[in-house]
Simulated assay, not measured.
Amino acid sequence: LKGIGPASLHQISKFPSFLEEDVGVIANSLSKLKKSLEVSGSWKMALEQVRYQVSQAEESNCRILSVLDSDYPSLLRFTKDAPYIIYVKGTLHQSPEKSVAIIGTRHPTRHGSLITERITSFFVKNDWSIVSGLALGCDTIAHQTAVAARGHTIAVLAHGLQTISPGSNKKLASEILESGGALISEYGFGSAAIPAHFVKRDRTQAGLAQGVVMIQSDIKGGSLHASRAALQYGRWLAVPFPTELDRQAAEPKIQANMLFASNDTNEKASLLNCDAADLQRLHIVESKEDYPKIIELEKYVGGTSKYGLDFLD
């Protein structure tokens, strides 16, 4: 229904016995739903779209999960802007709480590519699922490394599962599925990739994970969306410190890394759109000896952490 999004669905699902109740009865208590139903033919068209989505999912061997389903990813469930419905192709990780989002620029430096491989390999060896966005650059390297190491990886897409974008990663998407991983989208079949979808896709990556490793980014990089979301969700953000070679070359793709490693609290909080107190969960990774420390960072169970955050509120 036009005008009914995740927030409205969360409201509707709180209605007693809403699965069995007549939609008109529910609408009497929810003005937004009532307004949507007042449009001639809207409910009929909505049901037709439902049947289309279900048939496409069945033909594509995909599942449609809602937050009410027990196998909906646990960490994602407890984010305040969790997608109410997700489309899943493939297999989710057996221990979804052991998930890390590894993201970064589409144009990493040589060191950025190497660090992506090393950190991904480390997490795979420790049986963590690697979450990324199937974009070129760091995302692609993370997925490829996970597949090569026979680890589990999830690609979060900014469009419907009827296609793969970029097209150059179609083979990689197939390899992810063949290796026991999954493709996930909150957008139905037929949905195209538009700019707003990529921002939400990046937040969903952070929502699926205990924390985010942001390999490299400039000051305006798209990777900052997931980085901000990680801190807003009360989770951790790990950022590798650039090599001396990259620093001397003043590589544009390390500028966010340099800022995060600085002592400029105000600028860091401004770029990450967070309170200064949230920066306690920003961690700079100096070398591979720091990798084990990342795994020991705050773990989430049941939507709460030692910080006292409860994402059900």
Rank of each mutant, 00 (worst) to 15 (best):
Q11P: 05
L19T: 09
E21R: 01
G24Q: 04
S31A: 14
E38I: 06
E38Y: 09
G41D: 10
L47C: 13
Q49V: 15
Y52D: 13
S55L: 14
Q56R: 15
C62W: 03
L65N: 08
D69H: 07
D69Y: 03
S70N: 07
R77Q: 14
D81E: 14
P83E: 09
Y84F: 15
V88M: 08
K98Y: 12
H107P: 00
I119N: 01
T140M: 02
V147S: 00
A149C: 09
I154L: 13
A155L: 04
G160F: 12
S165F: 07
S174N: 12
I176Q: 01
S185Q: 10
V199W: 08
T204K: 03
T204E: 13
L208Y: 08
A209V: 10
G211D: 08
G211T: 09
I215V: 13
G222E: 02
A229T: 05
L237M: 04
F241M: 02
T243I: 00
L245K: 10
D246E: 08
Q255Y: 02
M258A: 09
N266Y: 12
A269T: 08
N273R: 10
N273T: 10
C274P: 10
A276N: 05
A276Q: 07
A277T: 06
D290H: 04
Y291M: 03
K293Q: 02
I294N: 02
K299I: 12
G303I: 11
F311Q: 09
F311S: 13
L312K: 14
D313S: 15
